[in-house]
């Protein structure tokens, strides 16, 4: 399962738990338009850290805050192994 698929699966699960209607996850979809609030993103990042063993926002000193779904996925994909 790719990093992208894992991220999307986690987002689907959190959307279900948080009763958020998730629009189709396209790269240029703004994170704001996903319907996720800060708490939902915090949950997502924590669960991805457990699943992927990485938290790119904490380990990378110059991690930019992503603003689209594509940027969010790339932040995870670009973490050096």
């Amino acid at each position: 399962m790719s990093v992208r698929s894992k991220i999307f699966a986690a987002m689907q699960q959190i959307a279900e738990e948080q009763k958020v209607k998730l629009p189709p996850l396209l790269d240029d979809l703004s994170l704001h338009d996903t319907g996720f609030d800060s708490l939902a993103f915090a949950i997502l990042v924590a669960r991805l850290e457990d699943d992927l063993r990485i938290d790119p926002f904490t380990i990378a000193e110059d991690a930019a805050f992503p603003s689209t779904v594509g940027e969010f996925v790339r932040v995870y994909e670009n973490v050096p192994a």
């Binding site: 800060s38 805050f65 603003s67």
Partner: peptide, 10 residues
């Protein structure tokens, strides 16, 4: 947290 939310909102 407010600021992170703003930064991520674009």
């Amino acid at each position: 947290s407010h600021w992170r939310k703003l930064l991520m909102s674009g």
